[in-house]
Amino acid sequence: MFKVYATTPESMGPWDIGAHAARAEAMGFDGLQVPDAIHDGLLLAALALQATRRLRVGTSVLVAFPRSPMTVAVASWDLQRLSGGRFELGLGTQIKQNIEERYSARWVSPVPQLREYVQSLKAIFNSFQHGSRLCFEGEHYRFTRLQPFFNPGPIEHPSIPVFCGAVGPAMTRMVGRVADGMITHPTNTPPEYIREVCLPRLQEGLDRAGRDAQSLRLILGPLVATGVDEEAVAAQWEQQRRLLGFLYSTPAYWPSLDLFGWQERGAQLQALTREGRWHDLSSVVTDEMLEVFVPRGPYEDIANTLRNRYSGLADSITFPMPADPAEDAQAARAIARLRAA
């Protein structure tokens, strides 16, 4: 049985997110992932939680380094109390150029820095709940002061799950060491890659920390092409071709290309971006690549397709919300079948 999370378009703003979340809840989704890209992820999460009663809401993923762990901890604590325990905090590093040039923040050593970020969050949460002295001192973060006046105090559901997005080997092992779960990148979701690369690295981190595998959740975020009929599926497939072309123009995402022997495709895509030929990226992504990276099928078949690919590899998966609400009933039946798989 999968927990099924709805996705949210990155362009969706605070004025639309409440209705989007309510729709997801009515369709039977277990949770909703909200982005942190064009709009603020914590604000979107707050409005989504306020508009629902059962739905879990997580950030996927909140850009960590421009924000102090303390400000994220305070917001997360408030969201958890507001929602009665339905908030999930997903964190990510983004890339060096964005952190330094878009956010004007520090990029030092992303793996140790995010590890300390998660550890300091857990220390802060512990102080909030138990009133204990705050004392976290690391190389990148230091928290030693929390006067009672600034402590929001205990809440009914203090265990806020902290997930991390991870791609590279060191970051994936780090997730196994300290986080509550991992959110896969769309480029890392072929079942072969999950089985042969992601899971062994997570296990290495778990072993290093002396943790049990049951303590870690894995949320798969595949690019899915689905719709009411084959024509709609084909249109979605082409949309995902364009997205994969954009994603694989970034070298950080090339490891999954390497696994399938498509190393040269990433270099071709990067060269096109340097020439400003953004519209030509999709021509590099072949149908063979799409077959590996993008599960496809109409609503009546897609649950079986996803089950056959991913059963036994994870407990949670994302599924696209229909652009047209008229398709909600058909999509809801696919979600029910996927939840029961």
Rank of each mutant, 00 (worst) to 15 (best):
K3T: 08
T8A: 04
M12S: 05
G13E: 08
A19V: 10
A24H: 12
A26S: 15
Q33V: 05
L49Q: 07
A51R: 03
A51N: 10
L55I: 09
D78P: 00
S83Q: 03
F87Q: 04
L89F: 10
G90L: 05
G92I: 06
T93Y: 05
Q94V: 00
Q94M: 07
R115Y: 04
Q119W: 07
S120K: 02
L121N: 04
K122T: 00
A123G: 03
F128H: 08
E137N: 09
L146P: 05
N151D: 10
P154D: 10
E156H: 12
I160E: 01
C164G: 03
V175T: 11
A179K: 04
G181N: 13
T184Y: 08
T184Q: 08
P191L: 09
C198G: 01
G205I: 12
A213Y: 12
L216N: 09
R217N: 14
L218R: 11
V224N: 02
D229G: 09
A232L: 06
Q236G: 15
L244G: 03
Y253K: 01
L257M: 10
D258K: 15
R265F: 07
G266L: 09
L269T: 11
S282C: 04
V284H: 05
L290D: 01
G297M: 08
Y299F: 14
S311C: 08
G312Y: 10
P325F: 04
A331H: 09
L338K: 09
A341T: 13
